[in-house]
Amino acid sequence: QAGGPIPESAEPRPIGPYGVSKLAGTELVLASGLDALVLRIFDVVGPGSPTASLFGRLAEGLRRALVQDELQVRMPDLSGYRDFVDVRDVARAIQAAAVSAATGVINIGSGHAVRAREAAHLLVRASGFEGSVTEDARQVLLPAQAGPGHAEGPYRPVEAARPVLEPVPWRQADVRTARDRLGWRTHVPLEESLGDVWMETACRV
């Protein structure tokens, strides 16, 4: 349900093969009788992001645009809300889980829902790219003057031609269990994560 955090007790409803395989693995572990813990990790960002990922793709597009002096980078729909968590915080969560006595399922995320478009703006700003980012699905984003009515950063939304419904418009983890049972919380802010994604991409030969 949009607007609130998703607890571990929420009924799983995967929408594709990837989610189905994750749920099947979770159920196998929980039914095995093993002393085991499943970490349900939300949207991972940070150094090492593959080019197939949302921000890996954007970073590579920005690098190419800057090298080739292009003024536009194309992206898929960025209207959905995601719970972005840095890969280094995920590594610390795995370490904490490995030495804990916790079992069952524990969410690992930032606990905050951020619009993908706003996160993309952070990466664009880190790159210094001054062109436009266009979305293939719902909207086209163009540079706009700051001021009233421009709540999504220096972008002006314009209707696009091919609307595509976002299958999962909202993801936000309830991370209270991770805090209480693992003593874990995030340390790396999203802006730093995306800045590091850009630095890694910019240094690629």
Score class of each variant (00 low, 15 high):
Gly3Lys: 01
Gly3Ser: 07
Gly4Asn: 05
Ser9Ala: 14
Ser9Lys: 03
Pro14Glu: 14
Ile15Gly: 08
Gly16Glu: 09
Pro17Ala: 15
Pro17His: 15
Thr26Lys: 12
Leu30Gln: 13
Gly33His: 04
Asp35Lys: 12
Ala36His: 12
Leu39Ser: 11
Ile41Pro: 01
Val44Asp: 08
Gly46His: 04
Pro47Val: 10
Gly48Met: 10
Gly48Val: 02
Leu58Lys: 00
Gly61Tyr: 01
Ala65Gly: 12
Gln68Ile: 07
Gln68Cys: 13
Pro76Ala: 08
Gly80Val: 00
Gly80Tyr: 00
Tyr81Lys: 00
Ala93Pro: 07
Ile94Lys: 02
Gln95Ile: 15
Gln95Asp: 12
Ala96Lys: 14
Val99Cys: 14
Gly104Met: 12
Ile106Phe: 04
Ile108Gln: 07
Ser110Ile: 05
Gly111Ser: 08
Val114Met: 03
Arg115Asp: 01
Ala120Lys: 04
Val124Gln: 14
Arg125Glu: 13
Ala126Ser: 14
Ser127Cys: 11
Val133Phe: 00
Val133Cys: 02
Thr134Lys: 09
Thr134Ala: 09
Ala137Trp: 09
Arg138Cys: 09
Leu141Phe: 04
Leu142Val: 08
Leu142Asp: 06
Ala144Gly: 08
Gly149Ser: 06
Gly149Ile: 02
Gly149Phe: 07
His150Asn: 12
Ala151Thr: 04
Glu152Cys: 05
Pro154Gly: 12
Val158Ile: 12
Val158Thr: 07
Glu159Gln: 15
Ala161Ser: 15
Arg162Lys: 14
Val164Gln: 15
Val168Arg: 12
Pro169His: 11
Pro169Tyr: 11
Trp170Gln: 04
Gln172Val: 02
Gln172Trp: 00
Arg176Gly: 13
Asp180Asn: 15
Glu191Cys: 03
Ser193His: 05
Asp196His: 02
Asp196Ile: 00
Asp196Pro: 00
Val197Asn: 04
Met199Gly: 15
Ala202Phe: 15
Ala202Gln: 14
